[in-house]
Amino acid sequence: MPLVNSKELFEKAYKEGYAVGAFNVNNMEIVQAITEAAGELNSPVILQVSSGARKYANARYLVHMVQAAVENNPNIPIVLHLDHGDSFELCKSCIDDGFTSVMIDYSGHSYEENVEVTRKVCEYAHDVKARGRYVTVEAELGTLAGVEDDVKVEFGKSSYTDPDQVQDFVKRTGVDSLAIAIGTSHGAYKFKAEQCTRNKDGILVPPPLRFDILKEVEKRLPGFPIVLHGSSSVPQEYVKIINEHGGKMPDAIGIPEDQLREAAKMAVCKINIDSDLRLGMTAAIRLHFDEHPDHFDPRQYLGDGRKNVKDVVKHKIVEVLGSNNKA
């Protein structure tokens, strides 16, 4: 099966009450781990590339690694998606390079600028006559706080999505899916301590997601696929391993998985996960070096990291997304 866009995947996910995982890729081991997990669980999957990943790995390397993964996993639908494209030019470049889906993120600009640039990207991406294929487009309304690659928004400067804008935005742009802000956040430090409470064990508990906003958006856009960014849960077992083996990640905290599963049963058809993969990889490597100080072969410690990433993805597919056996 060749690379696909997200249109039919989201239609099926919406009807059946699950979400498709969008996992960020940066190198070969991460691509392998994600697609092997999806293949073993018969799950559709989205491999997404940030502008930071393009700078690190080179866009052509990433495209060809994903193509190799498609050849190695012919029975599952795989989408190649641009995450947080910040300009028409970047989106155009990715479409021309063979990406099957792009995100234009102009949420940090005025509403009218967001509409104008998103519409321009959609017109280019949807022009089947020009390239013989339909490329799906995601956009964002509202702004998520946090830091991840080139996305940097200070706490206090984020904003929830205004449900009053969603119908007008979708109608005027022709966008295929919409990322909304309901309390998720980028990075491994998704909340400040003062935003949270502490349970009896002293562990930070984040504020709940704004399901009231999600329900209102769903009401105004029936059947339309919604996306959640910044949805890593920051597994504490990996944070603990990192901290016990030379790392310093105090009070790293993520989104509770039960809330993400609830969102997946509603209008949310795509859930973005990146930090959890990074934590799994880093925990494995730190542990490996402590247990094997004589090792210097990258295949040894990267192999451990790949296994952790695969374990993370399999857990997310079954317990959070509900996309197993949906390919």
Rank of each mutant, 00 (worst) to 15 (best):
E16H: 12
L214Y: 01
Y56N: 05
N26I: 13
G146N: 09
L302M: 14
S231C: 12
T35S: 08
K310D: 04
A264T: 03
C196S: 11
S233R: 10
V234D: 01
I95P: 00
S51R: 12
P222T: 08
F88C: 06
V170Q: 10
K92R: 15
P44Q: 07
E123V: 04
M266R: 15
K120D: 05
V135H: 06
D212F: 08
R210L: 10
E112W: 01
S110F: 09
K157L: 03
S6F: 05
T100Y: 09
F191G: 00
P298I: 09
E36R: 14
P256K: 13
E29A: 11
P250T: 04
K270M: 06
F10I: 01
L141P: 07
V217K: 04
V63L: 13
D150C: 13
K55Y: 08
H295D: 14
R220W: 09
A13V: 02
V79Q: 01
V115C: 05
N324P: 00
A13Y: 02
I285S: 00
F155S: 11
K316F: 06
G322M: 06
G17N: 14
Y189S: 05
N199R: 11
D105K: 09
V128Q: 07
V117I: 15
G17K: 15
E257L: 11
S50P: 10
K265S: 11
L41T: 13
K219I: 00
Y14P: 00
C196A: 11
I253T: 02
G98L: 07
F169Y: 13
